[in-house]
Amino acid sequence: MRAIILEQVDRLLAAQSGAAALRRLEAGEWPEELWEALEGLGLPLLLVPEELGGIGLGWADAAAVWQVIGRYAAPAPVAECMLANGLAAAAGIEPRGGFSSFGQTAPFGRFAAQLLLEPAPGRLALHAPGAATPGQNIAREPRDAMTPGPLLAEGALPNSHGPRALRLGHALLRAALIAGAVEHALALAVDWANTRKQFGRALAKFQAIQQQLAVVASEAAAVSVAVSAAARAVDSRGLEGASFEIACAKVVAGEAAQTTAATVHQVFAAIGITEDHELHHTTRRLWSWRDEGGSERAWAGEIGRNTLAQGGAALWPDITARDIS
């Protein structure tokens, strides 16, 4: 099932994404046609159980889809909608049609049909969107300050998701999108290195270039593994039960975002910083997404405080005790 959906999403985004679509999105246009196609695949309801009309897949499946979306620089906020609908359903709130966003600073909030909030630990509330004060991140994706409208429904999350499910889910979502964006930035840079010639040979023939891009490949692998581990842990133990793995994934993703963006811009040189080139759509998202859902500093601080409180002797046993067999 996962393989089929991944292939469908990949094919759809390959056909309907690209620099022109991202430019329109960043100019504030809603990607209506793409959104309808994504709804046609049932993507917004991927994490919603079948008995509530969804596809009923798990977090590992969702994270794999998010990674594909990240490869295309997220040309529509469907990952965010998947998270909002999935969590709402987990709290027993029946999903509604259209785009669902979440949080006080809501991704694409101005376009939301409903807004999911966490008014108290472990409780979720679905609101009509209310008024949106437009804002944006450095990728020029809408991040709008919301005044929630009337309450539509509310419910309690299962204990396994804990008291800060939206923050944890958001962190996993951003880490997964970063995993895809890092992959894409690397692919673009490899392609460019094989195309661009200087001193009579392709950039790819220079060891200085090879060695730098090898490091990016290493980071791509690290984020991807960290995200898979986190999503698998959520499937097994819920969001709060997976908070360590999610924190690890967001830290590694944030660090990888920095290394990747810096390196690919160095490889592309001047052409890569032009408005016309597609590279910046991905690198500006790397710089934005690492800050959203908690920075690497915030999550590393949480991991570190726990580690220091438990003491050195507990470090290795605590890591291995989280193994999933």
Binding site: A222, C248, V252, R297, G301, T307, I319
Partner: peptide
């Protein structure tokens, strides 16, 4: 400041183990 630095190391440790 040790918390953030230690957290970064532990995040890498756990990820390398996965790899």
């Amino acid at each position: 400041g040790a918390d953030v630095a230690v957290g970064r190391m532990v995040a890498r440790l756990n990820t390398l183990r996965g790899m």
